[in-house]
């Protein structure tokens, strides 16, 4: 489909749907370009303050040393 075919239909939309269409396009562009957007969430992998896990790992290492 060409943009010229789409534009008349977009013009027919009411204001809320025009805004939704705009948000949709911004979201699609963001996915394609992998950019960061306000209001979106992104994974942070770092296990901060995993002290219990860290102690278990150190115990495993020490036991392996003496095993």
């Amino acid at each position: 489909m060409q943009l010229s075919e789409l534009l008349p239909n977009l013009r027919e939309l009411d204001r809320p749907d025009k805004l939704r269409a705009m948000q949709f396009l911004v979201s699609e562009l963001a996915k394609e370009e992998d950019i960061l957007l306000n209001g979106q969430s992104y994974p942070v992998w770092s296990p901060y303050n995993s002290f219990d896990a860290a102690n278990i790992l150190l115990d495993a290492l020490n036991q392996d040393s003496h095993g």
Binding site: V44, W45, P47, A53
Partner: peptide
């Protein structure tokens, strides 16, 4: 592998 451990955050 060893006994299960609990990580924090998304993990």
């Amino acid at each position: 592998a060893g006994r299960p451990i609990q990580l924090t955050g998304i993990l």
